[in-house]
Design a protein around this nucleic acid. Structure first.
Lengths: 207, 207
DNA sequence: TCGTTGCTTTACCAAATGGTAAAAATTTGA
DNA sequence: TCAAATTTTTACCATTTGGTAAAGCAACGA
């Protein structure tokens, strides 16, 4: 009630905000926040710069909007780690899911990587207030799996870091991966390799 | 002989170029190429902007100089992978070395990451002409180790990607790592975890 | 049909930024 | 010590860039 009524957006608004965000994702992920320009974003969206600023208050608001939308979908797979599922399969499923996201949405991954690389100026609060609690809960779940003997003993936090880094690498360092692999697409090799690596790491020792 | 004689640099030149490059590493790794400004670099070096431009031809030359210096030291550990050493220990040593570099020189790692993230506009040629041949040679070495039964069968290229990504993660995503770990320094946990992970992956199955 | 609202364009602007010219100051070497 | 070479400063400049003002145009409801 203290808030503005906020009429629902018109068809034009929905379309143009979408166009702007799509273009902005391209530009920000390619040039970084500092290197991105409103002109480039406007051009990519097929709008004039003042027209773009009719829909967003400024460069920063576009960037923040992109990041917050991104963070929602980005964490879903981690949230879905099911404490009641089979530990190894749950974690391997998570690896697969993250790798697929990196391969299919590299721009999103790069946008996030760029933000963290620069010290998370925009999402520092999110890391502390939202990501950390979730991360801690999932570490407990993994530790439980270990304590009940269904998972090899690993450091849960560093395990998650390993999953994040190895999967996102195919997006964030995609330029390097492409330059080094003769194979056109790294998808199959990456899937096989990560499956093998994490299965060996996580499979509990038979006793 | 077609080149300029190039007198050796004076003491002042050596000192000031060092100051500039040190400051530039800070600024570029924090703000990215696009976000970095000559004013910020000059201020960090304790020089005026025109003075800075007396030593370097422009922003890009500073950036390129930093990257090329970086690439030299960065690849050393990979070059040193010894075909005649013990395969598992050679690779684990490489992991340790890379992790130490990431922990000790995070700015360098971030600078490189930012460059790749943006499509390697400056070092694309280097990737193709220098890194790729080295990478291919080392893949052959690893494949040899596998073929002679001294290493578990893994995809050499993706193995190297895994080593790079997991180790550099502690530098490039250091902000996130710090936000999520209660522990002050991730060094010990990271070393233990990566040692465990790659040992399990690489140890050949006893027959 | 007309007035209100929503969307777009044109024409700007101030600040920031990469870079330059040239004079002043300093260092160096004979 | 003094002239030549090197280094630093002062005073600029052109372009780019994020952003604004206001007029024009379009859509929509009464």
């Amino acid at each position: 009630m203290t808030d503005v009524p906020e009429k629902k957006p018109s068809r034009i608004q929905t379309r143009n905000r979408r166009l702007i965000l799509d273009s902005a994702l391209d530009v920000f992920s390619r040039d970084g926040f500092g290197g991105a320009t409103l002109d480039a974003i406007a051009k990519g969206a097929g709008l004039s710069k003042p027209n773009l600023l009719y829909y967003f208050e400024g460069k920063t608001e576009i960037y923040v909007t992109l990041l917050s939308q991104l963070l929602e979908t980005w964490l879903d797979p981690l949230i879905e780690l099911d404490p009641d599922g089979d530990p190894v399969e749950e974690l391997l499923g998570y690896v697969r899911h993250k790798l697929d996201m990196a391969l299919e949405l590299p721009a999103e991954s790069k946008l996030f990587a760029g933000e963290i690389l620069q010290g998370a100026p925009v999402i520092a609060g999110y890391l502390k207030d939202d990501l950390k609690p979730l991360f801690d809960r999932k570490c407990v779940v993994i530790q439980d799996w270990i304590d009940t003997g269904r998972l090899a003993p690993v450091d849960p936090a560093h395990l998650i870091f390993s999953i994040w880094s190895t999967t996102q690498h195919y997006a964030d360092f995609g330029t390097q991966v492409s330059a080094l692999l003769d194979d056109k697409s790294p998808a199959k090799g990456a899937h096989n390799h990560l499956e093998q690596m994490f299965r060996r790491l996580l499979a509990p020792v038979n006793q």
